[in-house]
Nucleic acid binder design. Structure first.
Length: 432
DNA sequence: TCTGGGGTCCTAGGACCC
DNA sequence: TCTGGGGTCCTAGGACCC
């Protein structure tokens, strides 16, 4: 048996812990640049504000309905998450932290009444940390997600599901007939793994509810859709197909991307932004003990605004896998200079690190020595510590040379990686 | 004026090899 | 006119999640 615990309206709930006056009021937390809503209180949802809705579309509600809009404070949310996860771990012997606000807990071997135990943990989290949570319990991850969905809806919307399931819903304790009843009143789009596209296709095929989906033949589902949906069907039928991942697996790629507050048109500004992204990405890379083999840099105009569209990206191979901020900045800025074209209002850019590998396997320390033999690994580690202690940009990488020097470097790099030289001057892949 | 920032997995199709 | 078959690796793109 598995539990899925998640914090209700997590970012808003974190803010309310420190500003109790926000209780009972419509509150949203906004994304970077205050662009759109990324967390909404129940009262804000009742006002009709949608997830990821642009701020300017509902700003009028601040005057008219007492809506409070807050800029996000991710450091705070990360800290609150750590505390919530430690208490949630008390539910059972294993835990997978699935996202900042939710975790699966393995309940194998846990004795006694699981629902009562879940209620107790909920109460403890609320008392000690101030975050309201819901818990779903079931034999598979997909069913645990569904149970959690039921627990949340039953609490929030009277009449959506039987009130006894509010806050904690233990599907594993119900007779199959009762589970079927709950599946039958759940929209197929509310099933974990069914998004808007597949949801529409399923409805077209007459599959409208979670129960309809659970009754399909897995092999047919695989043929018509995919193995992914087949797993979802089996999981709904009670057969575990998705394992609990207790040890966090290292990321296979690392991205730092941002929308700009106002359009960027000039290369120097863009280079500055991309250098910052590369720096953040390299820090993340070292934090998980990996090296990157390739660096992707991209920039594009806004897909929402009129005017000429432009979008390009370029993958820059590194001569050797590295975690050195200077080399990653070099690759990213060089790539940017190659794709950049003036005359566009750029709305977003980013750096992604690809082909990650474990630094111990590849003996990357070799690459952390520069030409003069100084050990850059130690330097990077000191820089990370200083920035962690005193704030993000306390120590920054200086300029890595003139544009001409970078271009020169680019051409040398291209010659060293012949598989890319033929593509080098061709139009890079556009990413909309 | 103003539209998030991350990730994962799977599949199709091309290149290339024998 | 006919035009191997199987395997691997790589990339791009789709779909999903929070």
């Amino acid at each position: 048996m598995l539990a899925l615990l998640d914090g209700n309206n997590f970012y808003v709930s974190c803010e309310r812990v420190f500003r109790p006056s926000l209780q009972g009021r419509p509150v949203v937390v906004l994304s970077n640049n205050d662009g759109c809503a990324i967390s909404r209180s129940n009262e804000a949802k009742a006002l009709g504000i949608k997830m990821a809705q642009p701020h300017h579309e509902f700003r009028h509600l601040e005057d008219r309905a007492g809506l409070v809009s807050l800029s996000a404070n991710f450091t705070l949310y990360g800290d609150m998450s750590d505390r919530m996860m430690s208490l949630a771990a008390g539910l059972g012997p294993g835990q997978e932290i699935y996202s900042i606000d939710e975790c699966f807990v393995d309940l194998h071997g846990v004795r006694g009444n699981l629902a009562e135990r879940a209620h107790a943990i909920r109460a403890r989290i609320h008392r000690w940390i101030g975050i309201p949570t819901c818990i779903g319990i079931a034999p598979t991850k997909t069913l645990a997600k569904l149970a959690n969905h039921i627990a949340k809806c039953a609490e929030r919307k009277a009449g959506s599901y039987p009130a006894q399931h509010a806050q904690v819903c233990h599907l594993g304790a119900l007779p199959q007939a009762d589970v079927d009843l709950l599946l039958a009143i759940t929209d197929v789009g509310d099933v974990w793994g069914v998004g808007p596209r597949i949801g529409a296709q399923l409805r077209d095929a007459g599959v409208a509810t979670a129960q309809d989906l659970a009754r399909l033949d897995p092999a047919s589902v695989r043929r018509r859709w995919s193995v992914v949906l087949e797993r979802t069907v089996r999981e709904l039928q009670g057969m575990p197909c998705i394992d609990l991942e207790e040890a966090p697996t290292p990321k296979r790629e690392i991205a730092v991307t941002r929308s700009f507050g106002r359009p960027v048109r000039e290369l120097p500004q863009l280079l500055q932004a991309v250098s910052d992204f590369a720096t953040r990405a390299a820090e993340k890379l070292r934090r998980q003990g990996s090296l990157a083999g390739r660096v992707l840099v991209f920039a594009h105009t806004s897909p929402f605004r009129p005017g000429p569209r432009w979008a390009k990206s370029l993958v820059v191979p590194l001569r050797r896998p590295t975690a050195d901020t200077a080399k990653i900045i070099q690759a990213a800025t060089m790539g940017l200079e190659l794709i950049f074209e003036p005359g566009y209002n750029l709305a977003k850019a980013g750096v992604m690190l690809l082909d990650l590998c474990d630094s111990s396997i590849l003996q990357g320390e070799l690459d952390l020595e520069d030409e003069s033999g100084r050990n850059r690994g130690q330097l990077m580690s000191v820089v990370d510590k200083l920035n962690a202690r005193w704030g993000k940009a306390t120590v920054k990488q200086g300029s890595v040379g003139t544009a001409a020097a970078r271009r020169d470097w680019a051409m040398r790099q291209a010659r060293r990686t012949p598989q890319y030289t033929t593509d080098w001057r061709q139009v890079p892949v556009a990413r909309a």
